[in-house]
Simulated scan of single mutants.
Amino acid sequence: MVHEMKCPYCGNPDTRVIDSRPAEDGSSIRRRRSCDSCGKRFTTYEKVETIPLIVIKKDNNREQYDREKIEKGILQACYKRPVPAEVIEKTVEQIENEIFNREEKEIPSKVIGEIVMRRLKDLDEVAYVRFASVYREFKDVNTFMEELKSILDKK
Protein backbone atom coordinates (compact mmCIF):
# COMPACT_ATOMS: atom_id res chain seq x y z
CA MET A 1 0.00 0.00 0.00
CA VAL A 2 1.51 3.33 -1.04
CA HIS A 3 0.67 6.47 0.90
CA GLU A 4 1.36 9.86 -0.58
CA MET A 5 3.22 12.37 1.57
CA LYS A 6 0.92 15.35 2.16
CA CYS A 7 2.38 18.83 2.37
CA PRO A 8 2.29 20.02 6.02
CA TYR A 9 1.58 23.59 4.82
CA CYS A 10 -1.29 23.18 2.33
CA GLY A 11 -2.26 19.49 2.62
CA ASN A 12 -1.65 18.79 -1.07
CA PRO A 13 -0.87 15.09 -1.69
CA ASP A 14 1.45 15.87 -4.63
CA THR A 15 4.94 16.28 -3.19
CA ARG A 16 8.22 15.08 -4.58
CA VAL A 17 11.55 14.07 -3.11
CA ILE A 18 14.36 16.45 -4.09
CA ASP A 19 17.12 14.97 -1.92
CA SER A 20 17.65 11.76 0.12
CA ARG A 21 20.46 10.89 2.46
CA PRO A 22 21.06 8.84 5.60
CA ALA A 23 20.15 10.72 8.78
CA GLU A 24 22.88 11.42 11.34
CA ASP A 25 21.84 8.46 13.49
CA GLY A 26 22.34 6.11 10.52
CA SER A 27 19.10 4.28 11.25
CA SER A 28 16.78 6.41 9.13
CA ILE A 29 16.62 8.24 5.80
CA ARG A 30 16.27 12.01 5.67
CA ARG A 31 14.26 13.26 2.68
CA ARG A 32 13.88 16.86 1.50
CA ARG A 33 10.56 17.28 -0.26
CA SER A 34 8.94 19.99 -2.32
CA CYS A 35 5.21 20.63 -2.65
CA ASP A 36 4.00 20.87 -6.25
CA SER A 37 1.12 23.13 -5.20
CA CYS A 38 2.50 25.78 -2.80
CA GLY A 39 6.21 25.31 -3.59
CA LYS A 40 7.28 25.06 0.08
CA ARG A 41 9.94 22.58 1.17
CA PHE A 42 9.96 20.29 4.18
CA THR A 43 11.92 17.37 5.61
CA THR A 44 10.67 13.87 6.42
CA TYR A 45 12.41 10.94 8.06
CA GLU A 46 11.83 7.35 7.01
CA LYS A 47 12.57 4.69 9.62
CA VAL A 48 12.27 0.91 9.54
CA GLU A 49 9.29 -0.26 11.55
CA THR A 50 10.35 -2.75 14.18
CA ILE A 51 8.46 -5.30 16.25
CA PRO A 52 7.62 -3.76 19.63
CA LEU A 53 10.17 -4.59 22.32
CA ILE A 54 8.81 -5.85 25.63
CA VAL A 55 10.59 -4.97 28.88
CA ILE A 56 10.47 -7.50 31.71
CA LYS A 57 10.28 -5.57 34.98
CA LYS A 58 11.73 -6.66 38.34
CA ASP A 59 8.33 -8.01 39.43
CA ASN A 60 8.10 -10.02 36.16
CA ASN A 61 5.38 -7.74 34.77
CA ARG A 62 5.85 -6.86 31.12
CA GLU A 63 5.42 -3.52 29.42
CA GLN A 64 6.24 -2.05 26.04
CA TYR A 65 9.66 -0.42 25.68
CA ASP A 66 9.50 3.36 26.17
CA ARG A 67 12.43 5.51 25.07
CA GLU A 68 11.15 8.40 27.19
CA LYS A 69 11.86 6.44 30.38
CA ILE A 70 15.55 6.18 29.47
CA GLU A 71 15.65 9.87 28.49
CA LYS A 72 13.97 10.89 31.74
CA GLY A 73 16.36 8.82 33.88
CA ILE A 74 19.43 10.21 32.14
CA LEU A 75 18.13 13.79 32.27
CA GLN A 76 17.52 13.44 36.03
CA ALA A 77 20.98 11.96 36.55
CA CYS A 78 22.60 14.77 34.53
CA TYR A 79 20.58 17.56 36.19
CA LYS A 80 22.84 20.59 36.82
CA ARG A 81 25.84 18.72 35.37
CA PRO A 82 28.03 20.06 32.52
CA VAL A 83 26.58 17.62 29.97
CA PRO A 84 25.24 19.26 26.77
CA ALA A 85 21.74 18.31 25.59
CA GLU A 86 23.06 16.98 22.27
CA VAL A 87 25.44 14.64 24.14
CA ILE A 88 22.53 13.35 26.22
CA GLU A 89 20.46 12.80 23.05
CA LYS A 90 23.35 10.97 21.37
CA THR A 91 23.83 8.81 24.47
CA VAL A 92 20.12 7.87 24.49
CA GLU A 93 20.40 6.92 20.79
CA GLN A 94 23.48 4.79 21.47
CA ILE A 95 21.69 3.02 24.34
CA GLU A 96 18.63 2.44 22.20
CA ASN A 97 20.74 1.11 19.31
CA GLU A 98 22.52 -1.27 21.68
CA ILE A 99 19.18 -2.52 23.03
CA PHE A 100 17.63 -3.06 19.59
CA ASN A 101 20.81 -4.58 18.12
CA ARG A 102 20.35 -7.47 20.56
CA GLU A 103 17.43 -8.47 18.31
CA GLU A 104 15.42 -9.85 21.22
CA LYS A 105 11.65 -9.59 21.55
CA GLU A 106 11.92 -9.23 25.34
CA ILE A 107 14.61 -7.68 27.48
CA PRO A 108 14.88 -7.52 31.28
CA SER A 109 14.84 -3.99 32.71
CA LYS A 110 17.98 -5.00 34.61
CA VAL A 111 19.88 -5.34 31.30
CA ILE A 112 18.68 -1.90 30.17
CA GLY A 113 19.74 -0.42 33.52
CA GLU A 114 23.22 -1.92 33.22
CA ILE A 115 23.61 -0.53 29.68
CA VAL A 116 22.52 2.92 30.87
CA MET A 117 24.93 2.80 33.83
CA ARG A 118 27.85 1.75 31.62
CA ARG A 119 27.18 4.70 29.28
CA LEU A 120 26.72 7.17 32.15
CA LYS A 121 29.98 6.05 33.75
CA ASP A 122 31.80 7.18 30.61
CA LEU A 123 29.71 10.35 30.33
CA ASP A 124 29.77 11.85 33.83
CA GLU A 125 30.72 10.12 37.09
CA VAL A 126 28.34 12.18 39.23
CA ALA A 127 25.44 11.38 36.88
CA TYR A 128 26.47 7.73 37.04
CA VAL A 129 26.42 7.68 40.85
CA ARG A 130 23.04 9.46 40.91
CA PHE A 131 21.55 6.93 38.50
CA ALA A 132 23.18 3.97 40.27
CA SER A 133 21.88 5.10 43.67
CA VAL A 134 18.29 4.94 42.40
CA TYR A 135 18.74 1.94 40.09
CA ARG A 136 20.64 -0.22 42.56
CA GLU A 137 18.48 1.02 45.45
CA PHE A 138 21.34 1.76 47.82
CA LYS A 139 20.02 0.84 51.25
CA ASP A 140 22.50 2.86 53.28
CA VAL A 141 25.58 5.07 53.15
CA ASN A 142 27.92 2.04 53.19
CA THR A 143 26.66 0.64 49.88
CA PHE A 144 26.84 4.15 48.45
CA MET A 145 30.45 4.47 49.64
CA GLU A 146 31.33 1.05 48.17
CA GLU A 147 30.16 2.25 44.76
CA LEU A 148 32.16 5.47 45.07
CA LYS A 149 35.23 3.50 46.17
CA SER A 150 34.95 1.22 43.12
CA ILE A 151 34.97 4.31 40.86
CA LEU A 152 37.98 5.82 42.65
CA ASP A 153 39.89 2.51 42.58
CA LYS A 154 39.58 2.37 38.78
CA LYS A 155 41.24 5.77 38.36
Results as ranks from 00 to 15, higher is better:
His3Lys: 15
His3Ile: 15
His3Tyr: 15
Lys6Gln: 12
Cys7Val: 00
Cys7Thr: 00
Cys7Tyr: 00
Tyr9Gln: 04
Tyr9Gly: 00
Asn12Arg: 01
Asp14His: 08
Asp14Tyr: 13
Thr15Asp: 03
Arg16Asn: 11
Ser20Val: 14
Arg21Tyr: 04
Arg21His: 10
Ala23Trp: 11
Asp25Phe: 00
Gly26Asp: 05
Ser27Cys: 15
Ser27Ile: 13
Ile29Val: 03
Arg32Gln: 05
Arg32Thr: 03
Arg33Trp: 14
Ser34Ile: 13
Cys35Thr: 07
Cys35Glu: 07
Asp36Gln: 04
Ser37Gln: 12
Arg41Glu: 08
Phe42Asn: 03
Glu46Arg: 04
Lys47Glu: 09
Lys47Arg: 06
Ile51Tyr: 13
Leu53Val: 06
Ile54Trp: 13
Val55Gly: 02
Ile56Phe: 03
Lys57Arg: 07
Lys57Ala: 02
Arg62Gly: 04
Glu63Pro: 03
Glu63Asn: 05
Gln64Phe: 01
Gln64Val: 07
Asp66Val: 09
Asp66Gln: 11
Lys69Gly: 09
Ile70Asn: 04
Lys72Arg: 08
Leu75Met: 10
Gln76Asp: 11
Lys80Asp: 11
Arg81Tyr: 03
Arg81Thr: 10
Val83Thr: 06
Ala85Asn: 12
Glu86Gln: 09
Thr91Arg: 13
Gln94Leu: 13
Glu98Asn: 08
Glu98Ala: 08
Asn101Trp: 03
Arg102Lys: 07
Arg102Pro: 09
Glu104His: 05
Glu104Asn: 10
Glu104Ser: 12
Lys105Gly: 14
Glu106Ala: 09
Pro108Arg: 09
Pro108Gln: 05
Lys110Asp: 08
Val111Ser: 03
Ile112Pro: 04
Glu114Arg: 00
Ile115His: 01
Val116Pro: 04
Val116Met: 06
Arg118Gln: 13
Arg119Ser: 13
Arg119Gly: 13
Arg119Asp: 12
Lys121His: 04
Lys121Tyr: 07
Lys121Asn: 02
Leu123Thr: 11
Asp124Thr: 06
Val126Tyr: 00
Arg130Asp: 11
Arg130Pro: 14
Val134Ile: 07
Tyr135Leu: 12
Val141Trp: 14
Asn142Met: 11
Thr143Tyr: 09
Ser150Asp: 06
Lys154Val: 02
